[in-house]
Nucleic acid binder design. Sequence first.
DNA 1: CTCCGCGCGTGTTACGTATAACGTCCCTCG
DNA 2: CGAGGGACGTTATACGTAACACGCGCGGAG
Lengths: 340, 340
Amino acid sequence: MSIRPRPTSRDVAERAGVSQATVSLVLRDRWRGRVSPARVEAVRAAVAELGYRPNLAARSLRLGRARTALVVVPALTNEFFARMYAGAARVAAGEDVGVVLYVPPDERGPAPDPFASAGAAVDGVLASSMAAESLATLSQGGLPLVMLDSEPRGPGTATVNPDIADGTRQVARHLLGLGHRRFAHLAAEVDSWTFRVRARVLAEELAAVPGARLVAAERAPITVRGGLGAAERVLAGARGKAGPTALVCDDDLLAVGACKAARRLGLRVPEELSVTGFDDLTVATAVEPELTTVALPAEDLGAAGMHALLALLAGTSPATTVLPAALLPRASTAPPPPGP
Amino acid sequence: MSIRPRPTSRDVAERAGVSQATVSLVLRDRWRGRVSPARVEAVRAAVAELGYRPNLAARSLRLGRARTALVVVPALTNEFFARMYAGAARVAAGEDVGVVLYVPPDERGPAPDPFASAGAAVDGVLASSMAAESLATLSQGGLPLVMLDSEPRGPGTATVNPDIADGTRQVARHLLGLGHRRFAHLAAEVDSWTFRVRARVLAEELAAVPGARLVAAERAPITVRGGLGAAERVLAGARGKAGPTALVCDDDLLAVGACKAARRLGLRVPEELSVTGFDDLTVATAVEPELTTVALPAEDLGAAGMHALLALLAGTSPATTVLPAALLPRASTAPPPPGP
DNA sequence: CTCCGCGCGTGTTACGTATAACGTCCCTCG
DNA sequence: CGAGGGACGTTATACGTAACACGCGCGGAG
């Protein structure tokens, strides 16, 4: 089986007994009123027989656009980003747009140039939750750029965000409404917009209620282990008198870790400690008790982002979109235990 | 701010006072002994000033290859696939190869042509755990193809698989060794190689031990809900006398659902019912009790797959690789309750 | 003195596709 | 009967890059 070079449109033309231009017309569906049905059929038959596929590099070069978007995501093993990607990919597939995915290989160190390593030609960029320095690199491409779940930027780039502030507000008010006054915050140790907003809004909401306060705050990597360790530090520190009765976590994984820590320390959730998460991941309903959390529309975010990018490519001017977040009260929150 | 067309290598040449050919030589690092250092510097400076980036479509067309791989994955929201992808992407990034990701939009219905919707030119394909019919489409591309976690095929395509048979064997022997004799199997409702192997090997292992048998089998979608429903059907059916004492699940999500079902029915895990999972997902250690499961080297699988693809592209002949699976005994398995 | 070889560069071409700009018929209408 | 125009195709060209095949001086060897 010797390797046979891929057939070109010229090969198809020869086989069908027409010119290469005619083949192109047929393939692009531009033949109406220019090519007779008989020849169209001949071309189609030749395409099928040869197993011809257009060379996409050549097409991109000729057309000056690739119908391809570069999607940049910090880590796909994070369910939230995976869902966001799924939404973006669905829209892209529907619009017949290709997707080149770029995931920075490592947290530390300067990431290699996404454009160089992308390999393929790309018309625009959809990036999510990036740290500021990576962003600089992305803007340098000079391509239309849509940011997801990130600090809204000046004109020039579009942004699509979940309403993190409102989600956080709902969590805080839910817990305050249950009667909690002593809070702890388990924060993600990543320094990005979304987590800064959570910390800020939580502080604001607590400040608005007399007697309410943040008795502890810890940062941890966004994993179950991370949450476990951080929660142990928070809870072990202040056993008894002035410990927090509510633990607000930046992510469901942290919340799950916190629940494990509570169990180890003999604290019952939610009777003695309320715990809240963020994102409504699969794990939120897998554990016992099921987590009270904030559902963010991850798929919609990705989908809206891709739509925004396509709009940008079509020439509309960039805008900022905010999608709603919804508190899902479940079994990990309850009124605080009565004071002594 | 009017849109400025992207500079080409000719623009760079003009600015640097050299010919376009020289620019190309410098950029491809082919100038040693052909271009004087002074001019090399001039070119580099011009590149920087103009923010020039090579047009990848043109480069691919000229070179006849794109240094880009098409990766096909059934669903990235499945943590196992996400990890597999991460491994593949890491290798690709290291080898300076781009990745075009294709996720079939829906389970049902014929998937659109991956190559057409890929948008970008591609040199080879890395596909995982696909149903047979999708595979046919992939082979049609005539491109080098590496399959992950799939039925080993004849010569022509390389395969990289986890040792599913051995993993399943370890689970069965672990439970048999604990004394279990009445088993139930919670199978994934997807019809793919990996799940067929699990069912077959489980049956074989039970057949080899006198008295051991499969008292029930159910199929379910690979979600917590799916596992919950299926486990309820299995467990509610045979309360008391001849119910299974061990529940072998094809996936950790199913196992988590099964644990929830057991709890609802008042069965304690692992004292009254042992449950095993597969894949060692994050959720396996998030729940209580932590799941006994089989760890599959997802990242390594993806990495090995990408290496295999690169080898194929370099001209080596396709091979089949098998990576080990490891049983992780944790807290969801124990000896069966003493008989009445 | 001639000629070769080397250091340095440049002109030119091809990759495969899409499309603008042209022909040709042949039919119809004035 | 001639002009006009529609239906049908083709020729030619450009997209941006990579690299082959040549120059052109100049210095040293023969």
